[in-house]
Design a protein around this nucleic acid. Sequence first.
DNA 1: GTATATGCAAAGGTTTTGCACAGCC
DNA 2: GGCTGTGCAAAACCTTTGCATATAC
Lengths: 140, 140
Amino acid sequence: MLRSLRDRGLRMTPQRRAIVAEIMSAEGHISPPAVARRVQERMPGVNASTVYRTLALLEGVGLLSHAHLERGAEYHRAGEGDHVHMSCSRCGAEDDLSLEEADALRRLIEAHRDFLPDFTHFAISGLCGDCRKAAGRVTA
Amino acid sequence: MLRSLRDRGLRMTPQRRAIVAEIMSAEGHISPPAVARRVQERMPGVNASTVYRTLALLEGVGLLSHAHLERGAEYHRAGEGDHVHMSCSRCGAEDDLSLEEADALRRLIEAHRDFLPDFTHFAISGLCGDCRKAAGRVTA
DNA sequence: GTATATGCAAAGGTTTTGCACAGCC
DNA sequence: GGCTGTGCAAAACCTTTGCATATAC
């Protein structure tokens, strides 16, 4: 991944190393402010603007992607680990859908519309099993 | 709808009337700052904080819902008109999916997971037909 | 040595909050 | 008249930007 940067005439600075390390070590997604906080713990003085610029840069190169979850944009390693986020609007529980599973959704939409969906970009909101039962009791 | 408020011991003020009117007249979704701007055109002096408080209130009562689109949260009348937003990540084109169409997606997810998705809450990102062809030419 | 990256500071935008006053019921 | 709602002002966030300095290559 360092190579991706070098090939573009970009530099591998200590700050970038730290930011990359933090995102790679974070399982799943992480928000820019969270990245900033964590990086600053290990490397005080790193500025938030550097974090934002680096995240945008790494996304531009294709190393990272961002997705929109309930709390806002979150970054994650691009590629292999991609998956669809499902979050319960009632209790906040999170679950994932593999790309294989999402593929069935994709085909369904393509059958109706001339549109190629990317379900990894926005989360899918809804009710988890437990909350569904609970809500049913209250509402009905 | 005024009744929904009265029944809760809530008051129908001119500001609320204006805010409700603005959202109901807006086809589709509208962001809080946009609501504020429009309301202030007709009723100068209405404060943004009033708009935010009112939107939250109306959502709590069930009159409004908000959805997350590419540009952030947007409010819309709850109920009937609900639909799924699909937006092209390349050109920004928007298209909708009816709830009937979305129902097929729902069933698919329910078949795999114990999760009841609400596709109206987050948009679905992807490539529209035109951009898909265009992107295909470039990438492939 | 030079172009890139960073820190700093400031600004922009959205959203929230505390408080005193106004106004709906 | 009492309690809710509003305006105002301030603050809390998040994010972006301009510029001088530092530094990777």
